[in-house]
């Protein structure tokens, strides 16, 4: 084999190799740039457009930003959405933890497998249908109050309250959070937990000192997902919370629907997005921060 041919062969192999490489690398770059980055950038640009006679016109004005950020109701919604999503996340994480703990440490493998399997089922049912069902269950004339009335209790107002909203959020997030928490806990080295017990560590102290730190990454990721899902959900606060007052996602729908104010809806959306980026970033930093000491 002469040197020349081997060089050609090598370069053709290299060329082939780079074709191969790009075949796998490029599609997603092109696709996501066109249909993910594109729309998001356009939305940011859109927040500077104007609307005349229900038609959007390209422009560059600060009006939408000044108008939305200058309104008290926008900030009220902002705080409210934070609060609701925050409460929803805390409650969901707390409710999920004993369940995940049971599944990870107490349940047999078969039980765990079936439980996870059951937790996936809700993903195959329509979220809307489940929310509609809650509507019937929580109503004043609904299932729960009918049951309580036999005990001489109630009726309790549960619909169109923040309680209703949180129930809705949990419908969306609880199965996912339990699954994520279970995986986070199941990955812990059990011998360490047992060692803690054997050294006389009490259960709650073990959870606090041993289990939580070791499962931190997974738990924080679960919480971040829970928060993001709740923060962006418009179905629960609308149907179970009576949009009273509206959260940011409802504000987006309202703004689009009435008067076709897409640019102002875009302002709300951009603010939400920035907020969630900050939350997600902070969460990831916290999750992967090296443990000190």
């Amino acid at each position: 084999m002469s040197e020349a041919t081997s060089t050609t062969a090598a370069s053709s192999a290299a060329r082939q190799s780079s074709v191969f490489k790009l075949t796998f690398r490029l599609p997603i770059i092109i696709w996501q740039s066109l249909f993910f980055i594109g729309p998001l950038c356009f939305m940011v640009a859109m927040s500077f457009f104007i609307v005349r006679n229900y038609r959007m016109q390209e422009d560059f004005v600060m009006k939408n930003w000044l108008k939305m950020l200058g309104r008290d109701y926008f900030w009220d919604s902002y705080v409210l959405t934070w609060g609701l999503a925050g409460i929803g996340t805390v409650v969901t994480m707390l409710v999920a933890f004993p369940a995940a703990y049971t599944l990870a440490f107490k349940a047999s493998e078969a039980v765990r497998r079936w439980a996870i399997f059951m937790l996936i089922i809700p993903f195959f049912t329509s979220y809307l249908v489940r929310i509609f069902s809650w509507y019937v269950i929580l109503a004043e004339s609904g299932v729960i109050n009918a049951g309580l009335s036999y005990l001489g209790l109630g009726p309790f107002v549960m619909l169109n309250t923040k309680f209703g909203t949180v129930v809705g959020y949990m419908t969306l997030t609880l199965p996912l959070v339990i699954i994520l928490q279970t995986f986070a806990l199941a990955n812990i080295d059990r011998s360490l937990v047992e060692a803690a017990f054997n050294l006389g560590c009490r259960p709650f102290r073990t959870i606090y000192r041993v289990i939580l730190p070791m499962a931190r990454t997974g738990l924080i990721i679960a919480a971040v997902f829970c928060f993001i899902l709740s923060f962006g959900d418009f179905v629960s606060p609308y149907y179970l919370g009576g949009s009273k007052p509206p959260t940011l996602p409802i504000l987006i729908v309202d703004t689009v629907k009435s008067g076709q104010q897409w640019p102002r809806a875009a302002v709300v959306a951009v603010v939400m997005m920035v907020t969630l980026f900050v939350v997600a970033f902070a969460g990831i930093m916290a999750a992967y921060r090296r443990r000190v000491g």
């Binding site: 109503a139 004043e140 609904g142 619909l159 169109n160 609308y238 009576g242 009273k244 509206p246």
Partner: peptide
Amino acid sequence: QVGGYFDYGGTFNSLKNGE
């Protein structure tokens, strides 16, 4: 006094179930 703001379906349901 206001208990909620409803779309079409919500209006139906909340009047019907006494909400």
